[in-house]
Write a protein that binds this DNA or RNA. Structure first.
Lengths: 125, 125
DNA sequence: TTGTATGCAAAGCGTTTGCAGTGAT
DNA sequence: ATCACTGCAAACGCTTTGCATACAA
């Protein structure tokens, strides 16, 4: 079903190489190095397609536009530096979240975002 | 500095009465009962003003538009029903999140969102 | 009276869609 | 030869802004 194209490969590669969640416009810029005439609409269409195909996950940092990362990653969360805006992946999880779920509710999934200053911004003080 | 007006009071009241985070358009609809000619631009301007004044907090559920809730609440998190879309307030927190923070990073704040089915939607199965 | 707040309409901005042309299989 | 994919531009939906009027204080 899902064909190959220079554009789609460029988009997938950009996300793979980045190693962190990317905004659509960041994907666009990076992928353009590999597919010069790449349009932003194609980026959006492919992010959707790759998501449907299970290759890519959408990450939403509260207050920001959705970012995209590779789907084949272990469970993790994110840290956003409120100074420089960079989003980092955290391979850790507090666990035991079922305890927070109200009676009669069913929890299937959770998202946790930490905010603060990254190393660079902490040292810059 | 922050004056009173029928519109601003209606907006504050709508958020107060709701007891859950509201979308701007929900605020608009509810507040219109109290201030009929209320325009959506006024809603946005006042949500911003109330936020600046520290009366209201912005809550972002990943993937949704920002919602607004009263600021004077104890620390809490949110549960979003993936069936009916309703957002509930959870007065609980896993704690010990500093342990997840990488070396050299400083965590100041965190947000946690649980996803699943609410009581109504669980029973409807 | 003075300056902020409001309503309306227009402008912005990121995202989505329509369409004719391109390209993968 | 098909049929999906692409680029471009127009359309969309939500949010913001400009401006003249209305309203608190």
């Amino acid at each position: 079903m899902i064909r190959h194209s220079r554009q789609r490969d460029a988009i997938r590669d950009a996300i793979t190489r980045a190693g962190r969640p990317l905004l659509p416009q960041e994907v666009h810029q990076l992928a353009q190095q590999q597919a010069p005439r790449l349009g932003i609409a194609t980026v959006y269409r492919n992010l959707q397609a790759l998501q449907d195909a299970g290759e890519v996950n959408q990450v939403t940092i509260p207050g920001d536009s959705p970012r995209f990362e590779l789907a084949e990653q272990p469970h993790h969360h994110h840290f956003k530096c409120t100074q420089c805006g960079e989003v980092t992946t955290l391979y850790a999880c507090p666990g035991k979240l079922a305890a927070l779920t109200p009676q009669g509710y069913q929890m299937h999934r959770h998202e946790l975002t930490l905010y603060g200053h990254c190393v660079k911004c902490t040292q810059a003080h």
